[in-house]
Design a protein around this nucleic acid. Structure first.
Lengths: 210, 210
DNA sequence: CAAAATCTTGCACACTCTGCAAGTTTTTAT
DNA sequence: ATAAAAACTTGCAGAGTGTGCAAGATTTTG
């Protein structure tokens, strides 16, 4: 066991670097030449690997471009389960998200994250891939919420609804952030979650069947 | 102007038929041989057109398989704008959806719709395409809600949040419907929308903390 | 009925993605 | 340190996707 600086073997570290190189190359080329003129071969070449290797890392160029939504999901789940149990579910979730680094607290990458999101918002194919990943994360969150609430994750719709609603808030906040990139994302997140409470969800007159 | 039985020219009618033939062929073959063994050529052949023509109708086989979510969207918007203005937004939306034929009230297709949804739930690539379409419909709904509320559709997050939350309810209800296909979809829809009201959105600490 | 508009199809072509079989590098265990 | 095992990269072959183009067929229009 040759434990080096990081807890990662040389192999794992190289894989990380390659992965990052491919992602960076993909984003740079997409921004430079447009998504329609982007090929896997060009990405691979820029990243210094073969086309075949690209597909060992990503299943498509969209996959390489889309935000790694699953990145901080585990941490969010962990934080969620640690929140005080008297906190209402959505508030607990919001706090878990905000105190996590789900959005990569690293401000160095801010412009890059913004550019990636902008690209995603503009291209339906990227958006679809993005939402596909989001959906998987959503299920993870639903399971965590179910555990927190002590109910069945599959039979009870509540945790699924909570997860879906929470992801909606995040999604809308990010869209707004991209739309006018001056406001800080965290403020928009706060606003979105706050607005959920006043959406006219509570109905007190269910229509006497006209 | 040779007005025939329907308000459609012979050409439009043929296109409708071809479109349906392709969709049906795609679903049948997917259910029969599995999605991984499905090719555009096979779909086209079964539908009685050339491969090239397939791509005149759909951009991919996923496109042909996924639920046409945009189908009844216009009708839902129209109904939404006709709801009494004192109805809370989500309730108005729910009623608009339920009184529309957004889910194709035709019970003949029930098994077919169910099969299609099951397929979608099982295959991430189909789910991604599906969510991509859903997202576009969601924007349409957000615009309608903004008009109903008399606010700016882009600047104000509220209509976007409302649309997203409403689609969440629909999405979860459909997933539940697929998961155990015995309960009628409309009951699950009602339940989902009803549960939105009790999600702990309002921060009033429902749990006295055991 | 003839001109215009529209739809279908085949063909060519670039690109995507996968399995397989080398060859190379890292890891593990002696 | 060294040899065997495990893991990664790469090229190649091949099936499939998706688009532009042009010729031919069909429908619409006047």
């Amino acid at each position: 066991m040759t434990e080096h600086a990081a807890g990662l073997g040389r192999r794992q570290q190289k894989k990380r670097e390659t992965r990052r190189a491919i992602r960076d190359a993909a984003l740079d080329l997409a921004l430079e030449n447009g998504l329609e003129n982007l090929t896997v071969e060009a990405i691979a070449q820029t990243a210094g690997v073969s086309s075949r290797t690209f597909f060992n890392y990503f299943s498509s160029k969209e996959d390489a471009l889309v935000t790694q939504a699953a990145e901080g999901a585990d941490q969010v789940c962990k934080l969620l389960l640690e929140r005080p149990s008297d906190e209402p579910p959505l508030e607990a979730f919001r706090n878990a998200v905000i105190y996590s680094n789900y959005f990569g607290a690293d401000p160095v990458n801010r412009e890059r994250v913004l550019a990636r999101q902008r690209l995603t918002q503009c291209h339906p194919s990227l958006m679809a891939h993005h939402l596909g990943k989001i959906a998987m994360v959503e299920r993870t969150f639903a399971d965590a919420l179910a555990e927190r609430m002590g109910v069945d994750a599959e039979g009870d719709m509540t945790p699924q609804l909570l997860a879906a609603v929470a992801m909606s808030a995040i999604r809308v906040a990010v869209r707004q952030w991209v739309h006018k990139g001056d406001l800080p994302l965290y403020d928009l997140l706060e606003t979105a979650f706050k607005q959920l409470e006043h959406l006219g969800l509570a109905t007190q007159h269910p229509e006497p069947a006209g």
